[in-house]
Structures are given as structure tokens and as C-alpha cells.
Design a protein around this nucleic acid. Structure first.
Lengths: 352, 352
DNA sequence: GTTGTTGTGCAAAACGTTTTGGATATCTAG
DNA sequence: CTAGATATCCAAAACGTTTTGCACAACAAC
């Protein structure tokens, strides 16, 4: 249902955007040179107060706003950086983005959010922004699997920082992220202590080191028998993998599921519920991230808390330190601590 | 804990970003004029195939990427628009953003997400991007209360579309949004039909028409006695308002709560749970938006589904239609249907 | 042998800023 | 009265593109 108010006579008639006032227009109207206008506005050199007042008057009257493009072209930088995230509806990244935004804001930079939906095409487009110098730098928080080579080529030439993610085989990167392996270990110890011996592990995409580190820490600390299935960090894949395994009878006497992130854990919960499997009565479920919904679902989800906000903030602050000096950041690693949140989705396995 | 890999000898030595290759460098290396390079790359005019091949070779060798700033400056537009949202961790806006992004992508535009956290300062900064012509247009999805005047000043001069929101008293805008009033009515009818007669309504900020419309539709259809409390669309405010009312004894024999969005409904649920009030046994709760978590919480939340994706998509597609022609969009309204999702948080009031 | 036409490439202007080296006038100190 | 300092402003260059008018050659058509 679309109603066009033009027929109601409530409108302008599609005015074409007319050319905005330029510094020359201001100069002409004020009877000075563009140089002087620039100096008045930037305060870069002193200008006679009377003249300055006149210029400011004209600026207001004409609604003049300097064209940032021209300014940036001349300055050689835009004072804007990007934050590339794979899935904006995952609130983990939303929190991370807040941290990044705050850090950028504090340092006088603009931050633009680039959401890729795990899509290589979009990632390319957004990385193009940095190659064409539309932005001064990029905080890269995970991404689609085939990104490694592209990233590697860019990393030495442009200011890029990795947040929450290591990309397999990538060297020389500035990284800020949680201690994924320690998180995995916490989960392994927790489930083992409860008495579980056979578990299902839902990992993230193979090429993302973060997921691999979680799995590694888990397997090592858990000690029991672990079956792994590869997911993609989205809710659907958690649902699908568990449902398939249940259908195929492959679940057998497994009593615990560790999903490499909360979203997949939600999917697992849904699949178990539909199959009539009780959580945590029959099967315990653990996630990773501790997104907002983790404490809202029923049963509430035992999970590993990641300091999403701090990760975003640290990665960005670190990156900007170099960007502002026109440097490419050196390799370094900032590891932030994680914490196990025990909630309602884990319990000792039922006696049999 | 921060470890610097430089000490491990794994690094470059903070290389300063060296000037990127320009079209002149390419031209010189290929023994042609910049004009010819431009023509080779844009295909704007035919170039001898042999020459073109040589130019392309140099382009690859030098890793030349045209500076988008210079290109945009010359073209007079950046082919990028912004999407301004107030709260990125509200998944309603995340869905809306996906729709906007898809629409922009389809039409060859870049979309940058601008998250304001309901902060007027940030909103100003982001609106500055359009005034300084860093972006070609803006999809504006709600915002901080005092925005109206700023918006009004911009609206006639720059391409702006409103998504999901009407701003009180704003005229001549392109708007795409849900039928908020109808949604409110659905809730009113539902609660009335269940037998509720006394309700608490948690509204959004006074100046946002969307919240007001929801309240209006609700009050009208419900017919019973309604107490209103003004929130800010965030979870905390839902919690606080309900907790305060419970403490003050003001809740009395009220049997239903309608929150103007899901986040506030979650807050209300938490406050009720803490106070030992059973939902839906003692009190029914209804939200608005139908974000992902609404079906995950326990009890699952009865709410009004808004087509967030479509709202974002429609607003953006409409806006771009005008942006691409260099026009400011005329006033028009695109209303999308809503739907009541009855779930576990509503039931008939307990007999007394 | 003129007149077009087609293919190929370049020079110069334009987009809108900021920056830098002067130019001019006025003032100060000796 | 002159040399230097200070205040005020401007002209021109530079940032990196795209666009447009033109030049020149080769070739065809008459």
C-alpha cells in the first residue's frame, strides 16, 4: 500500500539538488579570496576580526559547509575508518561495534560499519574502500573463509587490525581478541567435572582460528570422546547439524554439546527441543560469546563470556594509534580474558 | 596482557605508508598520458588494444587503484549512502539494516551504517557527513528526540528518507514504515478479548510518532483503563518503570503490560520475575517488533511482528531512486503491514 | 586532389579544498 | 630617515581524477 502525497498537494516538486555553495562563492560574496575564507574557518592563520566576521556572516547566510571530499583529497586522509563484521544481527558484533565506535569517536575519527553477511562479494567491496583510500584504515572482525589471501596482500600496505579473530596462517597482524583456547578449556573442564564423557562439538568454519582454538582447548581439557561437526557460526547450522545427527542416530549416548558460539547453541537447543530431548536433563549445552539472549533463553545458556566491547575498543584504539601517524601497524597481540558463565543448560548427565 | 611480537623479531619495522601510485605514475611508466590511462580503465573511449594491454600491465605491476576521493570529487557524488540507526544491538535495526544493505547493493551503492546510541552528538557527526557531501543520501531510522529541527533543515536540501519512523511535525518526507497504529489496535483487541480490563502501557520517547501511534491504536481498541509510562525503547527503561510501579504499589490489580517495543518488554519481564509475579499467570506481557529473541525468551513473548527487512529495503530503494537522479525525494508514505504473534506471555487474567 | 571519416592520443580545464611564499601597508626601534 | 618587524591578504600550486576539445595520421570516397 503506497500513497503518494504529491496528489495531496503537500509537496515540493522533486527539486533537483542544486550545486552547493563552494568556498569560492563565499569568497566572492564576502569580497575576499578563498584563502582568507579558509583561514577564517580553520584558524590556521590570523585574520582581521572585522573581515572574519564578514566572512562568517556569509558562511551562515549561504549555509556553506566545506566539501569533505576536497578537504580529504588535499589532506591525504579522510579521518574515517571502517569496521568490517560478518553478521550484524549477532549481538556479539553489535557490542564489539560499540567499543570500536567509542574508541574512534574519542580519537576524532568517524567509524563506518561494514556488514558482509559472510559474503565474499561484499567483503571485497568494503575492502575496496580501503584500497581506494576512501577510508584510512580497517578493523577486521572475522570474515568469509576465502579472505586470507586478500587480507594478506592488503595487510602490509594498509592499516588493518584484526579484532577477535586470527586468520589461519596470517602473519604480521595487529590482533586484539579473547583467549579462545582458554575459553574452550573452561568448557572442557566444566563438562568433565559434571561427569560428561561423550560430547558433540560444533565448530566454526575451518579457516577461522578463533573457532579452532576454542575446539582445541575444549578437546584437550575435556579428555573424553568428542565428535566434531563443522558449522558456520549461524543459528541455522547449529540446528541442522544437531537435527541431522539425531535423525541419523549418530547422537547415541552423547550427553553434551559444545557450540563454538551462542547462535549455534540456540540452534542446537531448538533441534533438541523439537526432538523431545530435555536440556539439561538428557543433554547439556554450552555456547560461546555470552550474547544478550544467552541469559534470556530457556533454559538459560551456560556459555563463555567474551569482552566484546573491550575487544572492539582495544583493536580500534590500537589501530588508530598507527593510522594517525600514517604508519602501518606492526604485529602484536592483545589478549583479553574470558569467563565461564554457568547457567541452566548444563547439569550432570542422567544416570542410566 | 599485551605481548608485542616485535621483540620476537617477527615484524616489519613500523613502515610508514608510502604514497600510493597515482594515475600519473601509471601514465609515465606506460609512456602514455593520464587521459589514456583513464580511458583504458573506464572504457569511456576506445584505445588501441596494444596500448591498452601495456597500460593494464603497468596497472597490475604497480597495484594501482584509482583514488575514490578524486573520482568522487570530479563526479560530484560518492555512490555511498548512510543508514542512521539509534541502537545497533537491537536486532530489529539489524534486520532493517540488512534490507537497506541489500537494496543499496543491488543498485550499485555502498551503504555505511551509522550507529548513534540515541546520542545527539553522534547523530550530528553523522548528519555532517551528508552536509559535507561525504555521502549522497541518508536513510534515517529513528533517532534522538531533539533531532526534529535539524532534520527539518536538512530534508529539503539533501536526499533523506525516514525508515520506520515519523518525526512529530515533520513535513515533506519520504517515509517507509509499518502500520504502527494498526499494530497497537491488534494488541488492544487481543488483550480485551482475553478479558483484561486494566493495563500498563510503556511508550517510547514522546517525540517519536511511531511509539505514539502504537499507544494510540492500543488505547482505542483496548477500551479499558490504561496507565501510561514513558520509556526510551531500551531494556533498562522497561525494567525500571515496572519495578518502580511495583514498589510504589501502583501496579495494583493491573493484569497486562504492553511495551512499545520488545526490548522494554524484556525489561518488564525481568522486573516481574524478580518481584515474583508470574507471567502470564498473574500478568500478561506484550511487546512490539518481534525481534529474534522474542521467541527465545521464557515465556516466549506475544508481540507485533514488523517487517524490519522490508522496511529497510523499501526506504532505501525509494531513496536511491531519487538520489541516482540527483533529486530530493518528494513526500510519500509506504506503509507495510504488521501481524500479531500470539505466544506464551499472554493469557486470560486470573479469576480473583 | 579535395573532403570526410575513423582511429588514436594528448593538453587543459574542472571538481573544492589547504598550504605556502610573497606582496603591501603599517608600525617600531634605532 | 631607514631597517626591520608585524599585520593582513592574495596568487598559485597541489591533491588525483574525469571530461572535452583538438591534433594528427591514415584511409576511403568522390
Amino acid at each position: 500500500m503506497t500513497r503518494d502525497l504529491r496528489e495531496a498537494g503537500l509537496t515540493q516538486q522533486r527539486p533537483v539538488v542544486r550545486r552547493a555553495a563552494s568556498i569560492k562563492d563565499v569568497a566572492a560574496a564576502a569580497g575576499v579570496s578563498p584563502t582568507t575564507v579558509s583561514h577564517v574557518l580553520s584558524g590556521n592563520r590570523p585574520v582581521n576580526e572585522e573581515t572574519a566576521a564578514r566572512v562568517r556572516g556569509v558562511v551562515n547566510r549561504l549555509g556553506y559547509v566545506p566539501a569533505s571530499l576536497a578537504r580529504s583529497l588535499q589532506a591525504g586522509s579522510t579521518s574515517v575508518i571502517g569496521l568490517l563484521i560478518p553478521d550484524i544481527s549477532n549481538t556479539f558484533f553489535a557490542e564489539l561495534a560499540k567499543g570500536a565506535e567509542d574508541a574512534a569517536h574519542d580519537l576524532g575519527y568517524g567509524l563506518i560499519l561494514c556488514n558482509t553477511e559472510f559474503d565474499a562479494d561484499r567483503e571485497d567491496r568494503y575492502l575496496g574502500m580501503i584500497r581506494s583510500r576512501f577510508i584510512d584504515g580497517m578493523v577486521y572482525a572475522s570474515g568469509s573463509p576465502p579472505s586470507r589471501r586478500r587480507l594478506e596482500a592488503l595487510m602490509g600496505k594498509f592499516p588493518i587490525a584484526l579484532a577477535d579473530e586470527e586468520v589461519e596462517g596470517l602473519r604480521g597482524a595487529l590482533i586484539a581478541g579473547a583467549d579462545h583456547e582458554a575459553g574452550g578449556r573452561l568448557v572442557g573442564e566444566h563438562l568433565r567435572a559434571l561427569g560428561h564423557r561423550r560430547a558433540l562439538m560444533l565448530t566454526g568454519p575451518r579457516d577461522l582460528r578463533s573457532g579452532a582454538a576454542r575446539a582445541h582447548g575444549f578437546v584437550q581439557a575435556f579428555g573424553g570422546e568428542v565428535v566434531e561437526r563443522v558449522g558456520d557460526f549461524k543459528e541455522d547450522s547449529g540446528y541442522r547439524l544437531v537435527a541431522e545427527l539425531l535423525d541419523a542416530g549418530g547422537f547415541e549416548d552423547r550427553t553434551a554439546v559444545f557450540a563454538a558460539n551462542d547462535l549455534m547453541a540456540f540452534g542446537a537447543l531448538a533441534a533438541l527441543r523439537e526432538a523431545g530431548v530435555s536440556v539439561p536433563g538428557d543433554v547439556s549445552v554450552v555456547g560461546f560469546d555470552d550474547i544478550r539472549a544467552a541469559s534470556l533463553v530457556s533454559p538459560s545458556l551456560t556459555t563463555v563470556h567474551q569482552p566484546a566491547y573491550d575487544i572492539g575498543r582495544t583493536a580500534t584504539a590500537q589501530l588508530l594509534q598507527y593510522v594517525s601517524r600514517g604508519e602501518v601497524p606492526p604485529a602484536s597481540r592483545h589478549t583479553l580474558p574470558v569467563e565461564l558463565k554457568v547457567r541452566g543448560s548444563t547439569a550432570p548427565p542422567a544416570a542410566r
